[in-house]
Design a protein around this nucleic acid. Structure first.
Lengths: 249, 249
DNA sequence: CAAAAATCAATCATAAACATTCAAATTCAT
DNA sequence: ATGAATTTGAATGTTTATGATTGATTTTTG
């Protein structure tokens, strides 16, 4: 049985049963335990399933499908993995900032149940946060229609009254020379100010953003940790400049 | 039975019965008491349920508050008429405040096309305003989950940087003696501050609110105009104290 | 209100599942 | 065919989930 064949087989079985034991797979494929483990690891990295003790399960064990009108962004699976990893850093009693953007949006379900306070400038986040009963403050200011983000001088001023244990932000590009960049100067300003108000600073960047540069500079690469699924050539060079957490689990 | 399988099972059973005994779960899953306890702990941690002595229950104890979507249906027709009339007061170049609430929400479509700037503390309003391409500022502050309104000290402070040609607000009760009242003191505070920042002040009150009194005082009846469909007995007495504009269908 | 019963949180031993390493087998490119 | 690269499976110590036990807490009962 060839590798892709096994992968396909595993996924099909999983979609039928929603959860699968490793032993069952060993029996039904004839492959060894180690091989199946490796298969599951790989499939998890691609966001196709979730490894659990004893086997694997669908990524969303709970019934909920992405709600109506909730358009799946590009690289959705990777973003969810990154978001999940980022959420692990948050502990009870902390206050965090969630930047507007699709990746930070995916963090919300993983923050449920934690005793935290969230500040955000992303309007779509507010609904999700309310759904999960997470105490939330929204930044005041101009509402940028297209991205549903709050920006502007008022937002910057409003922001300065908060302090954060963590901030989680997105960016459209990251490179060694130009650091983090994003297309909109207004949003860049918000991100820049937020960074100065946070004890721990985390950039959530999927692999497609690496070595990209866009219009507005946010901050040098050394100024924040990276949480990413990127495993390319720059990894070593980036590691000299900052912490980088590569999600594999 | 794998962990996520059990979790799924528990949640499904819970959604059916709204409450569940630990013993029942022990029997039906075949797992030990300790394991089920751990499961419940974990699910509670993720906000999926609420632990109670002897088992678990749905997190939202029993009855759902009428969501803003459902509330919109009460007296909907009257509110639309009032909203339309209120919108006529707004002219190009003006800045207005839209209070959180269903009646002011109905104003949004009638504001489309006007060259105005809107400030609001109602989160549902933001979507509608963006849809109609109306430049909008959102008040910063604590998000009151139930009503989707922004309130709190931060909101009050944020508010003070604006000045309005008009403010449009709702209230849950109005009476000659107690003026305007609303159940939530936090929202009342926002309304009160907004009134002091506005050249023209308008209360949008459907007939069902007349001679009602609720917990928090906003302002005396003389401090604002009323736009309403009320045509009852108090009309004459109210007219002695303030302007009242009665919309007729 | 006190005693009894039930449920709970905390701890611990154990067996299963795990990641890791390394050598053998297989596949691939030349 | 031959050497390099990849995949595989077995062996290893380590980690994790589980269920039993304990004493503490809560609820029920008399």
């Amino acid at each position: 049985m060839l590798t892709p064949e096994r992968h396909q087989f595993i996924l099909e079985l999983l979609n039928k049963h929603h959860t699968i034991k490793l032993k069952e797979l060993v029996e039904s494929t004839g492959a060894s335990e180690s091989t199946i483990r490796r298969d599951l690891d790989q499939l998890e990295q691609h966001g196709e399933l979730r490894r659990v003790h004893g086997g694997a399960s669908l990524r969303r064990p709970s019934i909920e499908e992405p709600s109506i009108g909730e358009k799946r962004s590009q690289h959705h699976a990777e973003k969810v993995l990154i978001a999940e990893e980022a959420s692990r850093l948050v502990e009870d009693g902390q206050s965090i900032f969630l930047d507007a953007g699709t990746t930070t949006y995916e963090m919300v379900p993983y923050l449920a149940g934690k005793k935290i306070t969230v500040v955000t400038n992303g309007l779509p986040h507010l609904d999700a946060l309310a759904t999960h009963s997470i105490p939330t403050y929204v930044l005041g200011g101009f509402v940028k229609g297209r991205t549903q983000a709050v920006v502007g001088a008022s937002a910057l001023q409003n922001l300065s009254q908060y302090r954060f244990d963590h901030c989680f932000m997105g960016a459209n590009g990251v490179s060694l020379e130009d650091g983090y960049t994003t297309p909109d100067p207004e949003e860049a300003a918000i991100k820049r100010t937020t960074l100065t108000l946070s004890q721990a600073r985390h950039m959530l960047i999927d692999a497609s953003k690496f070595n990209e540069v866009t219009f507005s500079h946010i901050t040098p690469i050394s100024e924040a940790n990276i949480i990413t699924n990127y495993k390319g050539a720059l990894l070593e060079q980036i590691l000299e400049k900052t912490n980088i957490k590569v999600v594999t689990s």
